[in-house]
Simulated assay, not measured.
Amino acid sequence: MWTKYHKKRRLGRFVLPAIAIAFVSYFGYHCIHGDYGLRATEIFERQRLVRTDELAVLVAKREHLEKAVSLLSDGSLDKDMLDEKARYQLNYSKADEIVIFNN
């Protein structure tokens, strides 16, 4: 014969809330301190800003180099630019010239 009566235990009513608190604590901790948590997001944002500045510097440098290369291309060869680059590469100057190297 089956009965619906069973003895309730005091410990039994704390198991489910304890498991729920453990899960919430675990995921809450990792939301803040995890690899993709709030602190990591702040670090990623700082790195993004630094690298954006570096990118702007590199883009400006590339544009300057592209402009210099376009002056040396076949279609629009600039004689002064060609002379300047040749003298710089060959380390050549005339006796009455003053040479200032600017990198």
Results as ranks from 00 to 15, higher is better:
residue 1 M to C: 03
residue 2 W to M: 05
residue 3 T to A: 14
residue 4 K to V: 09
residue 6 H to W: 14
residue 6 H to A: 13
residue 7 K to Y: 08
residue 10 R to I: 12
residue 11 L to C: 05
residue 11 L to I: 13
residue 15 V to M: 07
residue 16 L to W: 11
residue 17 P to G: 01
residue 19 I to E: 02
residue 19 I to F: 08
residue 23 F to I: 14
residue 23 F to T: 08
residue 26 Y to L: 15
residue 27 F to E: 03
residue 29 Y to D: 01
residue 30 H to R: 13
residue 36 Y to W: 10
residue 42 E to L: 14
residue 48 R to D: 08
residue 50 V to K: 08
residue 50 V to Q: 07
residue 51 R to G: 00
residue 52 T to C: 07
residue 53 D to M: 10
residue 54 E to C: 00
residue 54 E to R: 11
residue 56 A to D: 06
residue 57 V to P: 00
residue 58 L to S: 12
residue 61 K to H: 06
residue 62 R to Y: 08
residue 63 E to N: 10
residue 63 E to L: 08
residue 67 K to T: 15
residue 69 V to Y: 04
residue 69 V to G: 01
residue 73 S to G: 12
residue 74 D to S: 13
residue 77 L to A: 05
residue 79 K to W: 09
residue 81 M to C: 06
residue 82 L to Y: 09
residue 83 D to V: 14
residue 85 K to V: 15
residue 88 Y to V: 04
residue 90 L to A: 10
residue 91 N to K: 10
residue 91 N to Y: 04
residue 92 Y to Q: 04
residue 92 Y to A: 11
residue 93 S to H: 12
residue 93 S to E: 08
residue 94 K to I: 00
residue 94 K to E: 11
residue 95 A to Y: 04
residue 96 D to S: 11
residue 100 I to M: 00
residue 101 F to G: 04
residue 102 N to P: 00
residue 103 N to T: 14
